[in-house]
Design a protein around this nucleic acid. Structure first.
Length: 503
RNA sequence: CGGGGCGUAGCGCAGUCCGGUUAGCGCGCCUGCCUUGGGAGCAGGAGGCCGCAGGUUCGAAUCCCGCCGCCCCGACCA
């Protein structure tokens, strides 16, 4: 094959959507399955999820949460209890109506045994967990109740996209119960902080912490908080949400407790979640026209050794050297863990092997062959730098510098993402410039402007936003005290709202 | 769920309008030779219910009907 300018085609500039799908394919992260809207997560993609799980699970446990598991199927009557919740999710619920299959006359399997009690496949678990909580919570002594579940959920999406929006997806959902409103709000914000920390420190994704406007909040929540990231095409991606549910679900599920004073009161609940969408966000934030770029702290393999040998006679010597190098790397640490390294032993031509590992996004590549061995150096490539650049460095120096190199890569890709976010966030002062900002470009980015909650109910504004495909993403917590005149309604003393196109 | 495009080998496609030998091509895969540090070359080989199911016909990848899936644009969303 002729050598190409970029390993991925089309490039981001040529067609961002197709580029995204190609990156996933080339890295072997996931593929479509025979089941509509549901993806097959391949080992390389799943190992990313495993790392996400293990880090977050640690954070959850450090903050006193325990894992539990609730059923996949939720009795329809439970789901019915919270009106707003129903309105939000009813349209995308898969329903289980039968409990067996029978062969018809034509020899085809058909559903039989209709269920008396219908079930939905959980789109989220507030209702069935709430039912359990109503029994678990009796007294103020049972509170707070801090539960998390790792699970799959299903939302029958009209337009699925790998990782970003699939009918079935993997996530964690935290569900907590508190005796006071203030404590529940505190929990909601604590978990939002954990998500922000995780996004920044592990996925190297800069995010804006904010509050959702009423039209964008979780159905049934009093307040929804979000972390919003900006992809390389300027679109927003909601990377995680944390909800203060008030007493809505407590009332729907009868979660009541006896206070110290002996009064019976409804409890206050929260829920919060992140999903496999994070993987999509990570891909879109960092990857380039040569494929996936993995943040070092979450990469399943942080360093890959590529043995290059001219012939089978040369192989033992190179492999032996590679093994020894692997041992040395494995005995070094980065960010609180042993450095994860492996040798790519696949029998492949040098060039193929090289580009495969580029496309997999492995942060550091080491090529060793007789050339390096004779000179007693390593050829080292960093995934955040052009693929063809190599650093010649002695083994000793490399081992000594490796932790810092991984750290540099993390900082470098985070820095690039942050620059993208900052460069493409514009302060907008008027309705006209708001419209112009989004009309001028498909890849506008974020508009930060004073907006009122009421403005979302204005029909004319609704239409304008719809035409521009723009929606309010959040009211950033960082600027929540910064008040001004709403550019849509003229109402004074309103907070800044981030508007953007989104995934 | 509406509008548009598309389903042919693992991947990317031609052939479909206008039905007619044995369904092709490139990449990949296997074998051998030759190569070997930047996605090599030559030779040989394997691999297809032409998305699924009906229909029209002597004959269907090709025409008609239905269904399923994928991509794009709307409506909806983590």
């Amino acid at each position: 094959m002729k050598s190409k300018d970029t390993a991925i085609s089309p490039t981001r500039k040529e067609n961002y959507q197709d580029w995204y799908l190609e990156v996933i394919k080339a890295a072997g992260l996931a593929e479509n399955s025979p089941t509509r809207g549901s993806m097959i997560i391949k080992p390389w993609g799943y190992s990313l999820w495993e790392n996400i799980q293990s880090v977050l699970d640690g954070f959850f446990k450090e903050t006193g949460h325990e894992n539990a598991y609730f059923p996949l199927l939720i009795p329809l009557r439970f789901f019915q209890k919270e009106a707003e919740h129903v309105e939000g999710f009813a349209k995308e619920c898969a329903v289980v109506t039968h409990h067996k299959l029978e062969m018809d006359d034509a020899g085809k399997l058909v559903p039989a045994g209709p269920l008396e009690e219908l079930y939905i496949i959980r789109p989220t678990s507030e209702t069935i967990i709430g039912d359990a909580f109503s029994r678990w919570v009796q007294s103020y002594r049972d509170l707070p109740l801090l539960i998390n579940q790792w699970a799959n959920v299903m939302r029958w999406e009209m337009r699925p996209r790998l990782f970003l929006r699939t009918a079935e997806f993997l996530w964690q959902e935290g569900h907590t119960v508190h005796s006071t409103s203030a404590e529940a709000v505190e929990e909601t914000l604590q978990m939002l902080d954990i998500y922000e920390k995780f996004a920044k420190e592990y996925l190297a994704i800069p995010v804006i912490k904010g509050q959702k406007t009423p039209d964008e909040k979780f159905p049934g929540a009093d307040t929804t908080y979000t972390i919003e990231g900006m992809m390389q095409d300027g679109k927003a991606l909601q990377c995680g949400t944390s909800h203060f549910l008030g007493q809505n679900f407590a009332k729907a599920s009868e979660i009541k407790f006896i206070t110290e004073e002996g009064r019976e009161e409804f409890a206050w609940t929260t829920s919060w979640g992140v999903s496999t969408r994070l993987i999509g966000g990570m891909i879109m934030t960092h990857s380039d026209d040569d494929g996936l770029v993995l943040p070092p702290r979450i990469a399943p393999v942080q360093v890959v050794i590529l043995p290059m040998y001219k012939n089978q006679d040369d192989k033992p010597r190179v492999m032996e050297y590679a093994q020894a190098l692997l041992q040395e790397i494995n005995s070094t640490s980065y960010f609180g863990g042993k450095i994860r390294a492996r040798i790519d032993t696949k029998e492949m031509k040098g060039g193929d092997k090289f580009w495969n590992n580029v496309k997999k996004g492995i942060p550091v590549r080491i090529e060793i062959g007789s050339r390096e061995m004779d000179q007693n150096v390593l050829s080292v490539g960093r995934r955040d730098l052009p693929a063809r650049d190599r650093l010649k460095i002695s083994k000793e120096e490399f081992i000594a510098q490796l932790p810092q190199m991984l750290e540099d890569i993390h900082q470098s890709i985070y820095g690039k993402a942050l620059a993208n976010l900052e460069l493409n966030t514009k302060v907008i002062d008027s309705f006209d410039s708001f419209v112009a900002y989004f009309k001028d470009s498909e890849n506008s980015g974020f508009a930060s402007c004073y907006g009122s909650i009421e403005s979302v109910d204005q029909e004319e504004l609704q239409k304008t936003l719809k035409d521009l495909k723009v929606s309010p993403r959040c009211i950033p917590l960082a600027t929540i005290e910064d008040k001004g005149t709403c550019i849509f309604t003229g109402k004074a003393n309103q907070p800044r709202i981030i508007y953007a196109r989104s995934y």
